[in-house]
Design a binder for these strands. Structure first.
Lengths: 196, 196, 196, 196
DNA sequence: TCCTAAGCGAGACGGTACGTCTTGTCTTCCA
DNA sequence: TGGAAGACAAGACGTACCGTCTCGCTTAGGA
């Protein structure tokens, strides 16, 4: 029961790596299942043994990536201030983007990516933003909180896109500081006080 | 030579409308050329008489839309202050999004849109933003101007997405004001003075 | 309306000829649709434009052949004596087998033919035999007429198989005479008189 | 070493029975190895432990059946007259067909049988017929002996098919008598005397 | 008024990819 | 050691679109 599982895990990893590599080369749409299995040194039948189709494989890969992101945030979630925690907290998204930069590129930069995925990521981020804003707000805001959250999420993703696009000359910490500089004045103005 | 041209224009319009309607129903990817021509009451051969493929038709439609946007900005471009012009100027993007909301939805919200298009729009917007920032800056900024421009462009698009997504309960003017509230503190802080 | 039809007829003929040639080379089962279209210089998609599958093509070919057989029998069907008409009548099956010998070989001799087809042919022949026996019988037979008809049909097919198998050294007329020699005594004995 | 052998024999029997049952239900072609092992309550791997493929299993079953037929003919083969032996001799083929009627049906009647097998049986029978004819002939025949033998073999098989098809309302003895009635006049006429 | 070029419908065809199915091989584990 | 379980390679299947092509029909301007 030990070896077989490892064999399967290896097969799936080969497929995922082949997919990511091919997307970066030719764009998502034009990658065929045959091309993936050729690259992964597997047969086409094997692909369908593990995934329903190309999208299934893509989503499985993204799910893994996001599960990792969630894991980084949650563990020590006791009494920290949401939007302005100690440095590490704010750095996480940029650190994460750097580590998974191939998958991020595929999604954010690819000439032929799937907009649905990008949109899903933004909505996910916006939701997280909204939670944090609500946690630090002492009174009602002068702007719709959802609109603000989407604005911030969209801005962050665009910033990450620009960063990855230009070859990541900044460290994740520098990027977090940049983002801080861009958002802090707005937050302070809208909250009526710095977000703690 | 008059009638034929009109006939052609009519055919192209039918195709474009059929495409947009079908994308909103089923998403870009799953629309087939056959489905477009069925909807437009034309034959498949006729489609290929006018467009190379589905993407060609899509891009032609987007090009029309963007040409319109550009036309609205340019005419009276003399000595106005870029990022803080008289109200109309700032309202244009939201007004435009409202008018072409079907095409915007297709691009920004569709479950199956083409990421490349979305990315193209953001880069186009970021470039416009950068021009304006540089025009109002009196000295060097403490952040990379490209990063800031991308952040603002991404934020605006996300804001528009949220707005269209929630059924456009605000007027374009209100949206422009909202965007203003979110960006002004940041701009003031980074420029060292309000952007005029 | 003339050319297209001819084009289609040509395509179908190419497919049928390719199928027959391949069956004779490798047997029915192991012939693939791809192999047929390769041989016919057509694309696999075109095959499915005309036929549901390999069996459909096979049956269409056999149907043509049998329609021809039926046509030869019927026209001058006025007042001739069924089982013992002027020579031509009795010669028809052997003449037919000779002309379509490729298709007969495929069905009767192929190492990998389809028994269902063979069985269908025998039942068809037996039915024809039964009609003729009943037409010439003056009283009740001492054997079941269906049993006799099947015996004669099976015998004739086996005789044709042997003939084709050995390279058709006899003429169709000689084969008809042979068959006559084998069946006449039996018929005379069972009917109580020569079958007219 | 006794138990394992029995276990193996049991496994093979299960597979053979499953095959025959499935052929009668769905026809030879459409039976899959998976279906056979499912029915036999065995795993697919086990099938390949015992047989090369489906045809191998089929031929093994037929071989058993034919070995039995041969055994019935040979033992008391001393000085009997071939084509007109004491009743039992002539009855053997029909008796045999009755006992193995499932396998005969599969081969002779199945909508999807394998023509090669049927043909093999006919050639086998024709050869036996030829031996007998030559044994009883006192001079040269007016027809090719191979042609006659094939005619008789084909006739007998067709007769057996008809018999099994109609539910075997006759006893094997009655069938043998029928066959006798159909062949005797012909044999007498061709040999110039009754075949003893 | 005809007639003649262009827009268009119809549909055969060559291709490519899809997702499914079955086959036969192999390896690991269990009784 | 016989069998169960199941991953895998191989390859045919029938389907769905694609983009190209050829053929006629029609229909409106120019002769």
């Amino acid at each position: 029961m030990k070896q077989p599982d490892r064999r399967i895990a290896r097969t799936r990893r080969q497929l995922r790596d082949a997919l990511v590599a091919l997307i970066l080369e030719q764009g998502y749409e034009s990658v065929t299942v045959q091309a993936i299995t050729d690259r992964a040194d597997l047969s086409r039948a094997t692909f369908y043994l593990h995934f329903k189709d190309k999208e299934d494989l893509m989503l499985a890969s993204l799910r893994e990536m996001f599960d990792d992101l969630r894991r980084r945030y949650s563990p020590p979630q006791k009494g920290e201030s949401p939007l302005r925690p100690e440095m590490p907290m704010r750095t996480i998204p940029f650190q994460h983007a750097l580590e998974y930069r191939d998958l991020y590129r595929v999604t954010l930069l690819s000439e032929q990516g799937t907009a649905a995925i990008l949109r899903g990521i933004r909505l996910y981020l916006a939701d997280a933003m909204r939670e944090r804003i609500e946690a630090v707000a002492t009174g009602p805001l002068s702007v719709p909180v959802d609109g603000l959250a989407n604005y911030l999420a969209g801005g962050m993703l665009a910033l990450i896109s620009w960063w990855l696009d230009s070859g990541t000359p900044q460290t994740p910490e520098e990027m977090a500081a940049l983002f801080q500089q861009m958002t802090l004045p707005t937050m302070t103005a809208l909250l009526g006080h710095p977000p703690r």
